[in-house]
Design a protein around this nucleic acid. Sequence first.
DNA 1: TCGTCACATGTTTACGTAAACATATGGCGC
DNA 2: GCGCCATATGTTTACGTAAACATGTGACGA
Lengths: 328, 328
Amino acid sequence: MDDVADRAGVSQMTVSRVMSGKGYISSKVRDQVHAAAAEIGYVQNRLARGLRSEQSSLIAVVLPTLGNTVFTEVLRGITDALSAQSLRPVFGLTEYSEDREYELVRDLLSWRPAGIVLAGLEHSDQTRRAIDASGVRVAEVMDIDGEPISTAFGLSQKAAGQVTAQHMLDKGHRRFVYAGSQSGADLRAGKRLEGFRQTVREAGGTIVSEIISSQPSSMVEGRRITAEILSGGDRPDAIYYSNDDLAAGGIMHCLAEGVRIPGDIAMAGFNGLPYLDALPIQLTTIQTPRYDIGFQAGKLLAMQGEDRSSTASQLVDLGFELSVGRTC
Amino acid sequence: MDDVADRAGVSQMTVSRVMSGKGYISSKVRDQVHAAAAEIGYVQNRLARGLRSEQSSLIAVVLPTLGNTVFTEVLRGITDALSAQSLRPVFGLTEYSEDREYELVRDLLSWRPAGIVLAGLEHSDQTRRAIDASGVRVAEVMDIDGEPISTAFGLSQKAAGQVTAQHMLDKGHRRFVYAGSQSGADLRAGKRLEGFRQTVREAGGTIVSEIISSQPSSMVEGRRITAEILSGGDRPDAIYYSNDDLAAGGIMHCLAEGVRIPGDIAMAGFNGLPYLDALPIQLTTIQTPRYDIGFQAGKLLAMQGEDRSSTASQLVDLGFELSVGRTC
DNA sequence: TCGTCACATGTTTACGTAAACATATGGCGC
DNA sequence: GCGCCATATGTTTACGTAAACATGTGACGA
């Protein structure tokens, strides 16, 4: 900055003002400074800027995995929301471990981020304390069934499970199998299952079994689980998959084996992934606003903290929609 | 740090040494310092650390999109490689625009990253200059057909196109259609097409047409394009898709419409995405080491810069494998 | 005419850390 | 017994920036 200042014939502070766009600057000086900066290839040092101004233009993003399209879409939303104000996401992956989440949060707080995004509402006490102590602004994403740290953007996972159950019951199905993955570490999936169970029971239906694979969710795993379910002697009416990837695998199994959907077996998934529209059979699922969830979370954190009224904890329900296909 | 030092009864510098693990520290003092830090909830400030040590523990990652599984897997590889040394990725998306890439690179350099990852070998002169001037270490990923800035990890896209063409020719196909997306902004896809064209021509085959959609690649788009191709009067022997998502869409179209593969139309894709194993028909494709590419790029940048011998520009060929399915 | 105030720039200082440069202790070889 | 060197700690300073606090214009209303 001193070099730029010398070349432009002004003080270092004036260069700082031009770069940050704060304070009064005559247009003549502004141009001189920009020209000087371009000539010597000046690149500002955000480490110094952050140190002095006690805040960096980084947003910490802590997600379970990138193996699930859901989170890559959330991340896209966040990234897009931030890019306008040249905030950048720094991120870490928890692989659905609370301990790992804590480590990541601690580590990322050392960057003095302007905000932090967490997945879901369940965090260890340690994590909550570290966040409280840092005073960083928080946005939680995907889930709104619980108590947020400050603001959560998402949908009611439990209600999604209920709506799906109700729809399947309305279609006449009574005996269900639930197919999940990740050893049940995905707490949102657990809440959907909870809602599903409740509605099924109230209507007098049965959940014959709950199969929870230890593998990460994938189409291949969904196909495997489905084959397993259908090879058993006691075939259920319908399978409720914890997400679309598993369900799509189920559809593939049936296509390959000539099992009729929904005649032989009905299915429902969750997420409303774009590729479902390309499949030969339209899956009944729940459409979730994943990108928008990320985008709104990003926008909240990108807002300069002037808005102190929003300090109170708040749940922002971005809703979901039952997408009726031909699999029920 | 001063507070921690007071509580531990040592100097600030000793605390610094404990935190960074550099220099001699007695185990007694180390424990005292850790205890004191834990008591007051000390979180180091990486902005200050980076400022003083002239280098941050961030790795800049500039990718075209997160909409393509390929790049999310590369990103996973990078993230995993970095997490061991608690380096963190900061990233930006170019949406396949060179100008956007330049802006992002400039912006990310202001974080004084320990390294930067770029997709592909083609970058604007501006971008190259900015990187040269910064002296930052660079890893380029996915492509090795060209001149790297320093080290590139990937595979020969052109050779992949050639191998695919040769395989299809061997299977007796002569009249091809190429189906791509992104308005051709994906330069790697362009190189594959180049290799494909060359091999087809040398063998006396024909590329009847090259259809390049302006949409991002997706299964839905692949199904749409395929429907378009097959509805035309002059049906080709085979379709070469620029990637698996488009090809899977093609398979879906044929499943839904009763078009026989490869009897009525043959197909090949590129990437070897995991979900292909779940499809009723096994797609012939090229298996690419995407995660490994990201991982090795991450590892290179994570190495402390002691290895000055590797300054020379270098291409690391991680290879690919033809995955023979039942679509040719 | 003078005070006021929006505009424009400059000077000094602090942000939290680690590099560079001391200093002190004690074990070990000769 | 003495010098040397590995070990262990302390003091001073600089990293690049922006906040805080000046200072200096000139237009405009009373």
